[in-house]
Structure formats: structure tokens, C-alpha cells
Amino acid sequence: MKRVSVALSTMALTVTTLFALAPAVQAAPAASCYASSCHHKNPTSTGCANDAYTAKSARASDGTLVELRYSPTCRAAWARISNTHVGAEAFVQNTAGQSDSVNVSSGSDVHTSMVNDANLQARACYATNSASNFSACTGWY
């Protein structure tokens, strides 16, 4: 009987040690906005980027990738362009007429702020410059 008790004590100590050595899993911070309250806010600083995925994408003839990013937690969408040039414009709009745009000021990637996407659709577009003459747009999502 003593052997069983020693074996159980050893197993308990081993399990406790394993849990103590395991890295702590940290939950992603909760999003700070939802739907219309996300309009014109940054998806990264609000936490909306934490569960975001690319809902639609398109590639322009110059190789620029246009993505419509969507956060199901925030019910908001934004445009992201990558592999592009300084001066390029990313543009997002929803079916309620809300929109946002931003130009690449350095590097080759940029994303817009968000628009409401609760019970709406949105799309992302790319223009080679700030004239909003779109070279590529995603489909609506």
C-alpha cells in the first residue's frame, strides 16, 4: 500500500511541476468597439485585428495585393494593401456610404481605419495615387 501512496505522490508532484513550467497562455484583449462604434478607429489598437481574416482579396496588375479585412467580434471591416509603393491609396467603403482611405507614406503596406459592417457589406480598393482612380477592388462582403 505504501508503494501506491509513494507512486501517487510522485505523479502528483510531476503533474504540478509540469503545470508550473508550462508557459502562461494569455487571452487576447477584448475589443473596445462594436459595429458603428468602430467607424474611423484603428483595428489594431481596438483589438479588432485579433480575430480578423481576409474576407475578399484582389491583385492589381502592378502586383499590389488588396484585402478586405473583417473582424467578426467587432463586426467591422477595413482595407489593407501590400506589396505596393509610396503614394498608393487604400480605400474601404460600406453599403451605408461610410468610407475611409489612407496613402502609403513609407514602406509598401498600409491599412485604413474601420467601417461598420454589421448587417452591411463592404469592399476594399486600391489606387496607384490619391486620386481614387481605382486599379483594383475586392468584391463586396
Score class of each variant (00 low, 15 high):
Gln98Trp: 09
Asn94Gln: 08
Val92Ile: 14
Ala60Cys: 09
Ser82Met: 08
Gly63Asp: 06
Ser108Phe: 09
Ala124Ser: 12
Asn94Cys: 05
Leu120Cys: 03
Pro72Asn: 11
Asn83Phe: 02
Gly87Ser: 13
Ala77Leu: 10
Ala77Met: 03
Val86Ser: 07
Asp109Trp: 14
Ser99Met: 13
Ser105Cys: 04
Leu68His: 09
Arg59Glu: 14
Ala77Phe: 10
Arg69Leu: 07
Asn103Leu: 09
Ser106Ile: 07
Val92Lys: 03
Ser99Arg: 13
Leu65Met: 10
Asn116Arg: 10
His85Ile: 05
Asn83Cys: 04
Val104Ala: 04
Gly63Arg: 13
Asp109Thr: 15
Gly107Leu: 10
His85Lys: 03
Asp100Phe: 11
Tyr70Met: 02
Met114Gly: 06
Cys74Trp: 03
Thr64Phe: 00
Gly97Thr: 13
Tyr70Ile: 02
Asn116His: 04
Ser99His: 13
Ala122Lys: 01
Asn119Asp: 13
Gly97Asn: 14
Ala96Gln: 10
Ser113Ile: 10
Val66Lys: 00
Ser82Ala: 12
Tyr126His: 01
Ala96Lys: 05
Val92Asn: 00
Asp117Gly: 03
Ser71Val: 02
Ser113Val: 13
Pro72Cys: 06
Ala118Cys: 12
Val104Leu: 06
Ala76Thr: 04
Arg80Met: 06
Val66His: 00
Ala88Leu: 06
Ala124Arg: 01
Asp62Pro: 06
Asn83Glu: 05
Ala88Gly: 07
Cys125Glu: 08
Ser101Thr: 11
Asn94Lys: 15
Thr112Pro: 11
Thr112Met: 10
Asp100Pro: 04
Ser105Leu: 11
Ser82Tyr: 12
Val102Asn: 06
Ile81Leu: 08
Ala60Gly: 05
Thr84Pro: 02
Val110Ala: 14
Ser99Thr: 15
Tyr126Thr: 05
Ser106Arg: 07
Val115Lys: 04
Thr84His: 06
His85Cys: 04
Arg123Leu: 03
Val66Gln: 00
Gly107Arg: 14
Gly87Leu: 13
Arg123Tyr: 08
Ala124Gln: 07
Val110Trp: 09
Ser61Cys: 10
Thr84Gln: 03
Gln93Asn: 07
Arg59Gln: 13
Thr64Ala: 07
Ser106Asn: 15
Tyr70Lys: 03
Leu68Trp: 13
Gln98Arg: 15
Gln93His: 05
Met114Ile: 07
Ala60Ser: 03
Val115Pro: 01
Ser82Arg: 11
Trp78Met: 02
Arg80Ile: 05
Ala124Phe: 01
Asn103Cys: 08
Thr64His: 08
Ala124Trp: 02
Thr73Ser: 14
Ala90Gln: 03
Gln93Ser: 08
Leu68Asn: 03
Thr73Leu: 01
Leu65Arg: 12
Met114Pro: 04
Ser99Pro: 02
Val110Asp: 15
Pro72Ala: 08
Gln93Val: 12
Cys74Lys: 04
Gly97Arg: 13
His85Pro: 07
Thr73His: 11
Val110Arg: 15
Asn103Asp: 08
Ser101Trp: 06
Leu68Glu: 04
Val66Arg: 00
Pro72Met: 05
Ala76Cys: 15
Ala60Asp: 01
Asp117Lys: 14
Arg59Lys: 14
Gly97Ile: 14
Leu120Lys: 15
Thr84Ile: 04
Gly107Ser: 13
Asp117Tyr: 09
